[in-house]
């Protein structure tokens, strides 16, 4: 409990034209937690992800990952720190085979530098071997091994979602940000994915922050919940406590008006 949070955001703001999409979002993510980020549509969850992973530049505010400032840094630098994200609309590298999608994500491949490719043509091959084994192992976990040589663009929506998660794991993240990982996946595969998250947390100490709309998943599989509405964090705490929070119920019922919190 006394351990410093792995991630802290303070007063993050971003406006697009006249619309303030994120309006002073402040939150902590506990190291080793599986934290859900929920909120009605338009609450600014995805924008918040884009702001803290370098895809947008915040107008104001600070974000720290494991003691390092991340706001304003380019996405690839943040990813190399070990803070890796997935996208709500999957970004499978369609005209590349599944296995290449996976191997691409591995860090510390000296063969990605042109200098090494030209002057040390054998230096990267050993690493490539390791990466290939890792990729096959991970594909196994998500039942994608038989598709390894297929183009990623031929996969179904659910398979792409799994591929994107598996690919993010190849990057060996310490903090994984998932934007609606369950959307479009059948329940069996969804369960595998959740089990794997639990295992990664237990074995490798990976921290998760995931945006999710399915309240059953949130209540049963997260140990903390952060609620955003209208660009700010309106509540946070354990799932059961958040569920009965007055502000949260108001936000869901008053905001989107589509059924509220289950």
């Amino acid at each position: 409990m006394t351990e410093a949070p792995i991630f802290e955001a303070e007063g993050i703001e971003k406006s697009f034209g006249g619309i303030r999409a994120v309006n002073g979002a402040t939150m902590d993510v506990k190291r080793g937690s599986i934290t859900a980020l929920i909120g009605p549509n338009g609450a600014g969850k995805t924008t918040f992800f884009n702001l803290i992973t370098g895809f947008y530049r915040p107008d104001r505010g600070r974000a720290r990952f494991d003691g390092r400032e991340v706001q304003g840094r380019p996405p690839y630098v943040i990813a190399r720190f070990g803070m890796v994200r997935t996208f709500q609309i999957t970004k499978a590298l369609a005209a590349m085979p599944v296995i290449d999608n996976m191997m691409l994500a591995a860090p510390d491949q000296p063969g990605e530098s042109l200098r090494n490719v030209l002057f040390r043509p054998l230096a990267w091959r050993k690493r490539e071997q390791e990466v290939h084994e890792q990729a096959i192992e991970l594909l196994d976990v998500f039942n994608l091994t038989r598709l390894a040589d297929h183009y990623a663009g031929t996969l179904s929506g659910g398979q792409r979602k799994l591929l994107e998660l598996a690919r993010a794991l190849m990057a060996q993240p310490r903090f994984l940000l998932l934007d609606e990982p369950m959307a479009g996946i059948n329940p069996t595969l969804g369960r595998r994915l959740l089990d794997h998250m639990q295992r990664l947390r237990a074995e490798d100490g990976v921290t998760f922050l995931f945006i999710e709309h399915d309240m059953e998943v949130v209540m049963n599989h997260s140990d903390r919940v952060i609620v955003m509405a209208e660009g700010r964090v309106i509540a946070e705490g354990e799932p059961q406590a958040v569920r009965s929070d007055r502000a949260v119920i108001d936000a869901y019922l008053g905001g989107a008006g589509h059924g509220g919190i289950e």
């Binding site: 690839y76 994200r85 691409l104 993010a168």
Partner: peptide, 8 residues
Amino acid sequence: DAARALGK
């Protein structure tokens, strides 16, 4: 964007 998100 996918490449950047993976540290490239």
